[in-house]
Design a binder for these strands. Structure first.
Lengths: 347, 347
DNA sequence: CTGAAAGCGCTTACAG
DNA sequence: CTGAAAGCGCTTACAG
């Protein structure tokens, strides 16, 4: 963490560029007036406004954001704190938020916490130091104390996908319980009994909810729920499902908790020559773009990530406008996409 | 673009937090000394150092980065400018850079230009305004005038994947010509003659190089090169390959120029019931994680994105340390991964 | 080794 | 409607 500090201390020699003073001089007005024009202050006279505008043009003046940031004690940055950018789910989210942010003149800081609570703490500390305007977070640790600190400092926080414990944050989440119940019921309806859930970490909210939905469905059908808890990565799905097969325990269908684990599961099954859905049926949460291309096409429930990201940005932008209405909790629904892998469809 | 400006002007009311003055008072030293301790200035006496350190701890002081930024005329941000974050290739790159940046105490600004030159210009202007420390760019427009401006301002630029025309920038690129030649030769060696290249935009460097490699291989074999130029997206591959099949022109094998187009191509082929490799053989540039999972597994040349990203960061960090040695040009090689889709392998 | 003082480039009450 | 002046919170020559 020290390198960045060292670099910056030796960086002062950079030549300054045009300042607001020079623009003021050329336009024959005060710096204050230039500033007002730049900030769209209504009360500047038409003639002054024009003189400033042309002076700005002639000098090719660009305001120093750093000075602005210090003076206003804020920046133009929105921070995105996610557990893992390479997870397609979050990539879509980042892409959507970035496009929206650009439209509104913000820029985005991407912080990947790697599911590590302390990386989250470090990043959040950094973010209050940088006075980011707002943060959208999919927490690795929903209780992370720094979350409250952001809100204390007046920085709005929108929880995405997973809630945070601080009740002052807004939240945009998906109905994980209903979605997992639905896909599990689909397998039960097809006559499966030995259905195992390849679950993500139960200490992560979405993980826990998916387990809950699965267990509800199983219990309603008087079946014994059985799940393996792994981390939400390719490796997790690969090792978990590999072990499951190798154990020889009865198994006729899998519910897999997210797209990365699905990839791992498929690798493990393919290596062992297990056929889907003949030997084992499979359904997955998340609908990555390759789901319809693999053999067999995968039955999934799709999470409306882009819509969720847009919701999150909408709420955040409202908060940036100092909307102090009570925290919102927006719940989005998944969409079932039945394909061949669950064995209920003629191929 | 105006919204961000409006927000910040109304944001001053935020309560300040602990300042360096208060730390100095508590420690019984001057602010200058506190600053020196914080910035690891060697020449501070042991006793002063300790007093400062404990005062910092007691007050839970965090330096205001905004003030630091203005004073040093720099920030701790590295900017990543890429054409499309959702492209797996760039996602991997962003993830790798982010992790490296975190290790070194920088944070990263993600800018997606959407292949639009003017979006690139807007972003680069913003970046000089923000005095980012450095930028890694995969240019939508290699000639974008703002690239030179960054370098003029002393901000190091590393071109990634695609070079920029300004010769002062470093570049980390891949050997696209050799890679495309190699996969094309693989098909030729298997006896194919009607091999079409599903090419990306020829005005993009990587696109042009891939076309070149393909044409070199075809001409060496006295075959007529034929390519369709699309944009590097799923949609491009989908429509392009669909049209190709529907045209009824002779076609026995496809070389597809990147992973998104490959996805599109596969969708188009599947819709039409075209079998791979029996009806049409296929090889692709880029080796996404699903390449080995689809049916049939895809023959690809893999680009070492993570290594490339690490190279880029290494160069950039060196430049941040004011290394003024001549610009580097690091060329990475692809790796051929023969699987079933090219029809040269027993399934 | 340490401190007093200047200053980075803006914005914004405060007067007029 | 406009300007003079203060000040955001640091860092860093400059003296000592």
């Amino acid at each position: 963490m020290s390198e960045a500090v060292e670099q910056r201390t030796s960086h002062n020699g950079r030549r300054g560029g045009v300042t607001i003073q020079e623009v003021a001089r050329l336009a024959g007005v005060s710096p204050a007036t230039v500033s007002r024009v730049l900030n769209r202050d209504e009360r500047v006279g038409e003639e002054y406004r024009e003189r400033v505008t042309t002076a700005v043009g002639q000098l090719n003046y660009h305001p120093n954001q750093l000075a602005r940031n210090l003076r206003t004690s804020s920046s133009a940055a929105i921070a995105l704190v996610v557990p893992d950018i390479t997870n397609n789910h979050f990539t879509e989210m980042v892409a959507t938020v970035e496009a929206e942010a650009y439209r509104h003149g913000y820029h985005v800081l991407v912080c990947s916490t790697d599911e590590q609570p302390d990386k989250q703490v470090t990043y959040l500390e950094m973010l209050v130091g940088e006075r980011v305007l707002g943060v959208i977070i999919s927490p690795s640790d929903p209780n992370g104390r720094e979350i409250g600190r952001l809100i204390d400092e007046g920085i709005p926080v929108v929880a995405f996908d997973r809630e945070v414990s601080d009740r002052r944050a807004d939240a945009v989440i998906a109905d994980n319980i209903a979605a997992t119940r639905e896909v599990t019921n689909l397998l039960i309806g097809a006559g499966h009994q030995d259905i195992v859930l390849v679950a993500g970490r139960p200490d992560v909210e979405t993980g826990a909810e998916r387990i809950q939905g699965y267990e509800e469905a199983m219990r309603s059908a008087r079946l014994r729920p059985r799940s393996i808890n792994l981390d939400f990565r390719v490796q997790g799905g690969y090792e978990g499902v590999g072990g499951l097969i190798d154990s020889g325990d009865p198994l006729s269908a899998l519910v897999v908790s997210n797209n990365l684990m699905t990839l791992g599961a498929l690798l493990a099954l393919r290596e062992r020559g297990v056929r889907i859905p003949e030997d084992i049926a499979m359904v997955a949460i998340d609908d990555p773009i390759w789901a319809s291309l693999i053999d067999p096409p995968l039955t999934t429930v799709a999470q409306p990530v882009r819509d969720m990201a847009l919701s999150a940005m909408r709420v955040l932008i409202r908060r940036l406008g100092h909307d102090a209405s009570p925290p919102e909790r927006l719940i989005h629904r998944f969409e079932l996409r039945v394909r061949a892998s669950c064995g209920t469809v003629v191929r």
